[in-house]
Design a protein around this nucleic acid. Structure first.
Length: 277
DNA sequence: ACTATTTCCTGGATGC
DNA sequence: TGCATCCAGGAAATAG
């Protein structure tokens, strides 16, 4: 389940591999779920463009494109961006054209280097879109950039559980289920605590816990829980550092109390009943 | 303006 | 071994 650290790792890997390459042609599958706009529109925005940069915004991968003049296109269209959200099971692979097309492949971009950039997503929770008129701007604030003064008011007056608030991409963008649970454990806050009832001191702990967890996870290449691999097909290692996520009924690493699992907003939430209040 | 719930989707795990 | 059922969860849609 790619969250901020996984998406950051993937975006960096893609940047290394495809920056400067030119998208010559685009094939899009028939399944409509992964496409946020009509296939023809997406294809037209991508074809005959050079990939200037690949970066991450929240859980989105953003390809900055620049038009390439060809005999067919006069280059009058504005520069666009290709926005990829991996959902739960989305993958972007760079491979030779000879590589067998994986099941659930929804997009194939032919690159001038002779390689292909493919989007594969069995569950189809991922989304492909383009920003043509204005620059893409995801909702929410980057959790690694927000300072404490702007972090604290995010939760003011919110009756929702803090876990739900952390998953709300309109507040912070990029935190998902794993890193919400891990951050709450490190700051000693129960996931069901109403956001508005947490004092400044605890929020300050949460603020630094989120940034620590995300930075450590990025350094380890993300968490490989289901089938996540980076752009080079390598697994991440942060799953070995998980203190609560996926550890239901196992002993807390601090106090040996059994880790509990509850469902909040339809999501598994893991916590230590003794360490988190 | 918020908040809670439901829905979308497939593959892997589980149970009988 | 086979078949049904459950579960994972990001975000949009829906309902309250």
């Amino acid at each position: 389940m790619p969250e901020l650290p996984e998406v950051e790792t993937i975006a960096r890997g893609l940047a290394k591999r495809v920056t400067g390459d030119v998208i010559e042609s685009v094939w899009l599958g028939q399944k409509k779920e992964p496409l946020k706009s009509p296939a023809s529109q997406i294809a037209a925005a991508l074809e005959h463009t050079r990939i200037r940069q690949v970066h991450r915004m929240g859980k989105h991968i953003v390809f900055d494109l620049e038009n390439v003049r060809t005999s067919k296109s006069n280059g009058r269209k504005p520069n666009a961006q290709w926005i990829v959200h991996l959902g739960m099971t989305g993958r972007l692979q760079v491979c030779d054209p000879e590589t067998e097309i994986a099941k659930h492949t929804h997009a194939v971009l032919k690159l001038s280097s002779g390689r292909e950039l493919r989007f594969v997503d069995p569950r189809r929770f991922g989304r492909l879109s383009v920003a043509t008129k204005t620059e893409f701007d995801a909702t929410g604030i980057e959790p690694l950039e927000i300072d404490l003064a702007r972090f604290i008011p995010l939760f003011r007056g919110r009756k929702t559980p803090i876990k739900s608030a952390l998953l709300n991409q309109k507040l912070l963008r990029g935190v998902g289920n794993i890193y919400a649970d891990e951050s709450l454990f490190r700051s000693g806050i129960r996931p069901k605590r109403r956001a508005a009832t947490i004092n400044r001191d605890k929020l300050a702990k949460l603020h630094s816990a989120i940034q620590e967890v995300l930075k450590e996870a990025i350094a380890l290449g993300g968490s490989s829980v289901s089938d996540y691999v980076n752009a080079d097909g390598e697994e991440g290692f942060f799953q070995l550092q998980h203190r609560v996520y996926g550890r239901e009924a196992e002993p807390c690493l601090v106090c040996k109390t059994r880790i509990k699992r509850v469902v909040i907003a339809g999501r598994s939430s893991h916590y230590c009943p003794k360490c988190q209040k």
